[in-house]
Design a protein around this nucleic acid. Structure first.
Lengths: 118, 118
DNA sequence: GCCGTACTACGACGAGTATCGTATGACTGC
DNA sequence: GCAGTCATACGATACTCGTCGTAGTACGGC
């Protein structure tokens, strides 16, 4: 079937909360899970856009999908399709505008704790 | 029934995690709940030490106790008995030493969101 | 068209948690 | 001693969440 008005590369759209809909408690809840915090740390440290499978979490595919969905629905990451892959990137600008310094503090805290535990 | 090894009167001690035992994910989890975040905000804004009942949360006494316990066990607050009341205060120093700027960022974010919603 | 890859949707299960009511313990003041 | 206040402990309940497996959809290449 021919998609009339949809470009093939980005045919599927995913729902994202608008900047004004992002809630602090949602962001904190999303970051409070170790698996999701690890995802955010790697998105912050590595390339700006990374696919779900590139992060290779130590859980099943289903669970990986679940965590990425939580991060997206809470406004922490933005997801876009690119062929069969889905690319993820941090919503740094939106988070910085809403909660200045919060993301950086959490990332620095995570880094500090990782160093401390090593 | 006479408690044989009754903990002596004024010396009721409550277990607190040592500074080195405080985990980032625990702190974030504690702060992700709206009720607990409200408690922390009021402890930060008001007098340094406030009793449990002084905050007058819109939940039952049992639930209030539960939330204070979570905050204490995650290392966010310190609780000490004073007569019949129990005084709560933020562990600002410990949190600042472990995760510099984190608590202030969260408090500022909560304040910003409260203003935005008004 | 057919197959492989990447991700999703759905249902299920166990663990954790937020809430409550009631009963209990600790302290203060009479 | 007795009563009142503050907070706790315990059990119950309903809900959320993290995890999985299986079945299914979308895309790209053969």
């Amino acid at each position: 079937m021919t998609t009339p008005s949809a470009p093939s590369a980005a045919g599927r759209d995913l729902p994202h909360p608008h900047r004004s809909e992002i809630r602090l408690e949602g962001v904190l809840h999303a970051l409070a899970d170790p698996m999701r915090l690890a995802v955010v740390r790697r998105l912050a440290a590595g390339p700006a856009e990374q696919s779900c499978s590139a992060l290779d979490l130590p859980v099943s595919k289903s669970t990986t999908t679940h965590h990425f969905r939580v991060l997206r629905e809470c406004g922490v990451i933005r997801q876009t399709y690119r062929g069969t892959a889905k690319l993820n990137r941090l919503r740094r600008d939106d988070l910085q505008a809403l909660f200045p310094g919060l993301l950086d503090s959490v990332l620095a805290a995570a880094q500090a704790e990782a160093v401390r535990r090593a």
